[in-house]
Design a protein around this nucleic acid. Sequence first.
DNA 1: CGACACATGTAACACGTTACATGATTTG
DNA 2: CAAATCATGTAACGTGTTACATGTGTCG
Lengths: 192, 192
Amino acid sequence: MDTAYAYSVLMSIKHGLLALLAPGPKYGYQLKAEFEAATGSAWPLNIGQVYSTLQRLEKGGQIEADGVPDDDGRVVYALTPSGRAELADWFGSPIAQESRPRDELAIKLAMAVSTPGVEAREVVQAQRSQAMSSLQSLTRLKVTVPEEDLARVMVIDSLIFAVEAEVSWLDRCEARLRKARTTQTPEKEAVQ
Amino acid sequence: MDTAYAYSVLMSIKHGLLALLAPGPKYGYQLKAEFEAATGSAWPLNIGQVYSTLQRLEKGGQIEADGVPDDDGRVVYALTPSGRAELADWFGSPIAQESRPRDELAIKLAMAVSTPGVEAREVVQAQRSQAMSSLQSLTRLKVTVPEEDLARVMVIDSLIFAVEAEVSWLDRCEARLRKARTTQTPEKEAVQ
DNA sequence: CGACACATGTAACACGTTACATGATTTG
DNA sequence: CAAATCATGTAACGTGTTACATGTGTCG
């Protein structure tokens, strides 16, 4: 293999489509619909992206067009053994911590505290109020989806948990910043 | 602008480098070192990527090479007004919820529950034990960095908070799955 | 000398994203 | 008929990632 990325390889869509193809062959529009039925309101999926991804999956030998277009011009794709293997591997092994994208917010705050002229606490507060408002829309959204729809509920929960964690983290940062200012530079704030 | 992405635009490195250039001109290796000094052990930065990104920033008019290579072949880059403006905008506005990458784990679990033949609870448990072990390494790592090093402490905290939230979420998913199995299909598990 | 760190750079690729073109079918 | 929806596809770009080439300086 030449494609051995050490971390930060995003393949959510690819794997998601593979999973949707597991029960049986499907076509593009159907995949978009089913993908959004589960992860839906959270992460809409541009239809163009479905076809791009299908193309790349076919090129990679993980899926193949099921013969000719079906009854009415719809092109149906099916998993190949290779694709089925990759899917099994995806489900079978946990997602590595190192394979996750860099957290832009963490980087931003790290940079904010070490960049002169930037008030890190303002950054924290702006982010916090934004997080609180998304928390509200998420809880509003959650009551609209029935408990039985496991996939959707779980996805929304994951967003809620992530935002809540972000708020807690921001609060801790606030505390750290407050403490650092009062202990380190007691009267430096008077300057300028 | 032609580049108006609606969501999922990753620009952590770009903005990170811009921030590092704010105090004054710097060269590639130095930027790598300083970037890792803050976000360090969490997200190492390939040196090649620094040069790629610098090149793209220069092409985009956000930075420019400071005349000739300095005393010893080192090429120093500085912010342009445009770059400074973009940086101010980055610090000044919160990171949008929609601009975050899709959570692969959430998608995976959503797919797991709707894919026949896949035991979602096994996926949950595998992920959970992996999360617990990364939580351990993170807490081990945290004690090695001094409290005064705000940036690094905050970055590690952000990882810890994220993993803790993941564990809580996984536990909730476990509960939901257990409940769904006992209420929905009481004896279906006997089949096959 | 040989190994290693410092330093710059390029080429190639994978993935995500959108804009655009094209047609068939349905429906007010 | 016109508009909306269904359906497929392509071209282009931005960002992240790595592998590789190249050279300098230092130190055992």
